[in-house]
Design a protein around this nucleic acid. Sequence first.
RNA 1: GGCGCAGUGGCGAAGAGGAAACGCGGGAGUCUGCAAAACUUCUAUGCAGGGGUUCGAUUCCCCUCUGCGCCU
Length: 331
Amino acid sequence: MNKLLIICGPTATGKTELGVHLAKKFDGEIVSADSRQVYRGMDIVTGKDISRNEKFNPPAGGQNSKLNIKNKKFSVGYRLKEGIPVWLVDIVEPDYIFSAGEYSILAHKVIKDIWSRKKLPIVVGGTGFYIKATIDPIETVLIPSDKELREKLEVLDKKSLQQKLKTLNLQKWDSMNESDRQNPRRLIRAIEIAMKIKNGKLKMENDKEKFKMDKLLMIGLRASYKLLYQRIDRRVEERVEGALAEVKELLEQGYFENLPSFTSTGFSHLKDFLGDKISLPEAVQKWKYQEHGFARRQMTWFKKDKRIAWFYITEPNYTYKIEDTVGRWYT
RNA sequence: GGCGCAGUGGCGAAGAGGAAACGCGGGAGUCUGCAAAACUUCUAUGCAGGGGUUCGAUUCCCCUCUGCGCCU
């Protein structure tokens, strides 16, 4: 029986470490669910925690592998962490605009591949949306983005976008809450979908079943904010030096700034420091704050998912307790 | 000792005689292809303390305290 283990929770709780530990114990492989670690050349800023010596490995089976994606934009493979494969990192270049929909498609391929080798896939990550896109039946997430349309819509102001959506699909508008109605990004996507549906191009394959994942166990790691912030701060301090070098390198490669990959926490502040706009201590402090907010938003996302079995990392022997829980579920 | 400037929420900071901007931080949320993003929302009955003036003062006047600068 195919089973899927998920380890989620806010940043700096030791998810990867736990994942590796469990992978060793239960003969598993890790599938990263992290919207920033998909980018190549961004290891330390995004906290991949994988040694730079561990290079990217293409999937076994070479050309014949199902993971050999025809689309050249992606490369699916793994890097090793303490001998355990970590999939779905280093998928695209930093200037690619990656998305949850694409992630879910790749994740399914990888998970199936791991199953086919009789191993336990362990999805480890802090990007709740990516996890959801993977484990819950989804609909519109598979409707691809329309670059040209977006470029046209992006120049419009909020009012026009709202008006446009109302005329295209009033139902959708009515279903949106105030927060989303004020969110240009959400409005643009809603318009995009509304137009696709209108043009009758939406053929909802029976993906729902295909994508349905039973037999899953969700483990969440958490801590009090006070402790979490301490851990975050420490981790940031540890990464500053390496991250600076990385940011510098990426900037030298000529990537421009308004890319999604460049919105990773810390990035803009380190860039400001390199550009002599702020001092290093200032940059570091801002990075920490940014990461605190990120952790909070992660928590508000995960708190809603009642399937998650939470473990406080301050609890004594929590690793053992998790092992026990996983063991009973898996065997 | 004398003179000058300043004292506003956890921090930075604007302000005007008549309901205390804004930024950061912190909290709570939204979410079906940019999600480490984007968006929503909450966070000072009070402006160093004490007296006045006034219908009304955080804003004007006086005193005290504190900080900074200058002068002997």
